[in-house]
Design a protein around this nucleic acid. Structure first.
Lengths: 349, 349
DNA sequence: CTGAAAGCGCTTACAG
DNA sequence: CTGAAAGCGCTTACAG
């Protein structure tokens, strides 16, 4: 006891009491205290009253580290977000997924480590392994080497909107091909037949499928989308959308196209910004459609017609599934792909 | 050994090797292995070679939980974001701070728990205490009861952009009053004298000071801002900015004002959106200024003139300071307030 | 109903 | 240079 109080200077707050201190003061053994706290095993009402009162009085908080040590379960999970240069926790789309994960994780009593890492590095993954997380959620563009690494370590994980499917791994994704189809339908239904397409990185599953679904549906409608009407973006950023559009200004000014489809909102918004700066009227002269339904899509002026991807549901499912994996439930059902939904706003007519 | 392998079925990945297993195979004691890993204390080259080889071969990863147990340091920190209804990890401004925190924390070898909680609840805080985080970063609107709670527990923490200052607590903030002054200067310099103000929640330090700085400077310039030209927003959201402006449409249509200042970008953007929908030309007819410089400010059409708050620097400082607190460095200097910077864009002339 | 003992995976004096 | 021992704060059989 003396040593304890002396280890901190004078009036500093007391160290957190341990089960041992409670036991000492209550005049029972540590085992008894432990049983009372966990609620399993028998205990006499008297012992219970005394211990519970002490817990309240001393503001006892169980040490989760010690618990993890013996139970071999930390009740912590890790979320890995990959990035090229900057972290992307604040990314308008992935951020939403993270939000939903935080909420859902809390309701299942998990705490979550959020980490980001560069391409081709698995420092974060290694870190999470050392911390002995119960499971991992991998978001977006993850490198094969990282996946192999994690798999080798034997920690359960699920992927969310990953760039590629991996055999046997639970992968939560949107029905992106169907989403592309919805866009094509909407645009053709509203009379557009000269459509320009900004296709995001085709190495990423979602951009690829959105583009493919769109093209397939257009072909079926008998409307041609010539090669010249498609531009491939290297990144899926606002700046790139703006750039691509600025390089296409010639044909657009000449009235070659009546609509634009970009495989995500950021690209679409960038393109729109450029057009608005040229005093193009949207949707009167050009209609624009994006994909994702990030918050900004509704805020932009004009607001952006897009395909909503249910980021919240992705987050919730990922936690639910990961929890099942962690608890080793017998047969965890792979989730069905999420239904995309067309949201018509001011940018199309 | 047998028990070990049987505890997992058949071909499942092996359990993580422990220091004990390394010691056994290397024919040395656990102490020796520990010393070699930590690099402190002596060890013979032969022992070192053998142990290091084994670590490589078995892919040994130290168990951070066990380490935390003995060192009483988890190398984990918690970030608490408060919210009303929804989590705000994806918030355009606070998200940026979190991003910077993640990056800076990683470079100092901390892992970070990100949590959100409702107003008036300290469930998350309690959770972090149980997890025995080394320190805490509190962002934005935190309740006094939570602060008291944490203080009682004796864990070091810093506040970032909190709603109020707390004695003796390190608080990282922007020079908001100065920022308000910058806006007033810019607007008066460009000839505006009929300015409408949308003031965010005055219970929050930053909104209050931005407003105050602006008003003080206007008064000094001899330009009156009558009561009727100020509207107080209950939340600092896009929707509220939009709403407030829609209710002010009468005076605006009548040409009563030539400029708007909103105490954050979201409010400003909402207001702008409404005006653009009424075909008001910005900045020709109305100039608009926000505050924060969230990413979307530059993307909007027209892009928004605003005052940049260095969210990245806030995140970095918070980690640096927290680390000093954790390591109990003698006298940690309270940080000076961050310099705001006026960013002139398309929305003002 | 209760307590003594062992153990989770490490680190850290302390002897040798 | 190395190993045995104790201990971090819990939980979990196992005796009583």
């Amino acid at each position: 006891m003396w040593e304890r109080s002396h280890s901190r200077k004078g009036s500093a707050p007391l160290d957190n009491p341990t089960i041992k201190e409670i036991a000492l003061r209550a005049g029972v053994s540590k085992s008894t205290v432990s049983r009372i706290i966990s609620g399993k095993g028998y205990s006499s009402p008297e012992a219970r009253d005394k211990v519970l009162a002490l817990i309240e009085e001393l503001q006892y908080k169980p040490n989760a580290v010690a618990r993890a040590m013996v139970s071999q379960r930390t009740h912590n999970i890790g979320v890995l977000l990959y990035r090229r240069d900057h972290p992307i926790a604040s990314h308008p789309f992935y951020g939403k997924i993270v939000d939903a994960i935080l909420l859902a994780a809390a309701s299942l009593n998990y705490s979550v480590f959020v980490t980001t890492d560069h391409d081709m590095s698995y420092r974060s993954a290694d870190f999470m392994m050392e911390k002995r997380v119960d499971g991992l959620i991998l978001i977006s563009r993850l490198q094969q080497n990282v996946i192999d690494h994690i798999t080798k370590f034997g920690v359960p994980y699920v992927m969310v909107n990953g760039s590629t499917d991996v055999d046997g791994v639970i992968h939560i994704v949107n029905q992106d091909e169907e989403g592309g189809r919805l866009v094509a339908e909407h645009l053709t239904r509203t009379g557009h037949d000269r459509i320009f397409v900004i296709a995001g990185p085709q190495t990423h599953r979602s951009h690829h499928l959105r583009f493919k679904g769109f093209m397939t549906c257009m072909a079926l409608s008998g409307i041609e989308v010539p090669e010249a009407a498609v531009r491939y973006a290297e990144t899926s950023t606002f700046a790139e959308g703006y750039d691509i559009m600025s390089r296409q200004w010639g044909p657009f000014r000449a009235g070659r196209y009546s609509a634009i489809f970009a495989t995500n909102d950021m690209l679409a918004l960038g393109a729109m910004k450029f057009l608005l700066e040229q005093s193009v009227r949207i949707p009167e002269q050009i209609s624009v459609v994006g994909f994702d339904d990030i918050d900004f899509a509704a805020m932009f002026a004009p607001s952006l017609t897009t395909v909503k991807v249910d980021a919240g549901e992705m987050g919730r499912q990922s936690i639910k599934l990961l929890d099942q994996l962690i608890r080793q439930e017998p047969n965890v059902a792979h989730p069905s792909q999420l239904q995309p939904k067309l949201i018509v706003r001011q940018s199309t007519k």
